[in-house]
Nucleic acid binder design. Sequence first.
RNA 1: GCAGGGGUUCCCGAGUGGCCAAAGGGAUCAGACUGUAAAUCUGACGCGCAAGCUUCGGUGGUUCGAAUCCACCCCCCUGCACCA
Length: 434
Amino acid sequence: MAGVDATLLEDLDRRGLINQATGDGELTQHLAESRTLYCGFDPTADSLHIGSLVPLLTLKRFQAAGHKPIALVGGATGLIGDPSFKAQERSLNTPEVVSGWVEKIRAQVSRFVDFDGGDNSAAVVNNLDWTGDLNVLDFLRDVGKHFSVNNMVNKESVKQRIQREGEGISFTEFTYILLQSMDFSELYQRHNCTLQIGGSDQWGNITGGVDLTRRQHRGKVYGLTMPLVTKADGTKFGKTEGGTIWLDAGRTSPYAFYQFWLNTADADVYKFLRYFTFLSVDEIDEIEAADRERAGKPEAQGILAREVTRLVHGEEGLAAAERISRALFSGDSADLSLGDLEQLRLDGLPSSSLPADFGEQSLIHLLVDAGMAQSGKQVKDALGRNAVLVNGEAVGMDRNSDPAAVFGAAGALHDRFFIVRLGKKKYHLFDLAG
RNA sequence: GCAGGGGUUCCCGAGUGGCCAAAGGGAUCAGACUGUAAAUCUGACGCGCAAGCUUCGGUGGUUCGAAUCCACCCCCCUGCACCA
């Protein structure tokens, strides 16, 4: 095993990835040796979304620097629900559902760290393993006794729930911090884990673990948080018209994922390159300088989309995403070969076959059914503005009741395909062959 | 349990008997401009191509007419009490 990269923290700092750290600067010294660190991921759905990407990639950065990463899947904490900075109490999911999600997320996080790394090979653990059979009295005596309710109430992360009119917090969620603190203490015992990382919203939970480890085992452990990702325009990061951007290819296709990054605002793109890629800060600075000099359209978005898509979906996913993007956004779709079109379907371009009786339905109905818009009104609006293109040709409202003509076999690409575009970015492929 | 406050369309939030599918803002979608940006302007924004239909925690009532009034119920919040 090679030595550790002593410049890790400095690099994280240059990337803007350090929000807060415990220990008054002792962390740098602590990380001079190979250490074990962990980050938790609660199963709140069957997939993580890009909000978890920063901590996930940071784990990877630590491993690359010679440290041993543990990804903790919250089989226990997922049953409780983290109240940190959440505006309202959340409803509980059943143990069956959560345990199903645990498996999905275990597989997902596993892809981001290396398990054959020898001394600093990664590990995945589930906190249900040490809490599932825990006795309530033991818990209250061994863990609860170390926590002051006075302090917990004063945590910034739950303040709004306690002070805000119209909201409250149950004992269940209030107790969350104890569980997460136990995790840290437990991992310190089991794996000599001395660092926990997480989003800045986890600061309270992390320092709780630091304190508990000291009290239970007199162990000196550290915490490090990364900033939450924000966008310059103030809207929420990670959402689009299609909803959340998930890491699971079945929920968000590599193509949609790639497009999400490609559409990053100029004001955010260099920051995102530092957050979400392994390009060095110097390289990123050069990209920024070059973009500025050239004026016009920057290259940064393309680089970002490529790098992140490769990290999450691999070379194949990236290739598929780029094939679709090229086909749709540059050149004439009429030039696509039969093989190209079939490949686009396989690559995950939204597609479907036309129903047998499509001639009797309205165009609006067909496009809504295909998932191109949320309501008929949106399609109507688009039709009225010539914003619907079928194989490159604008279709107006007057053709709405005549889909047989619009989708007549004569007009199909290779007698089979229709590429329908709604607006500038939404595409759907209709395949007559099903 | 008692007292007080509250539950409105994705979110925030107006609306207190007809002029309400319901102000305003945000988010979102579409158009113009562009770079598949940003900013700006325009349109849409419960469902329905439309005629029209269904909404304002739930149920029932008063009324020609209710999101708005009444009754009961459910849920949330605040305070007080109770925890034998």
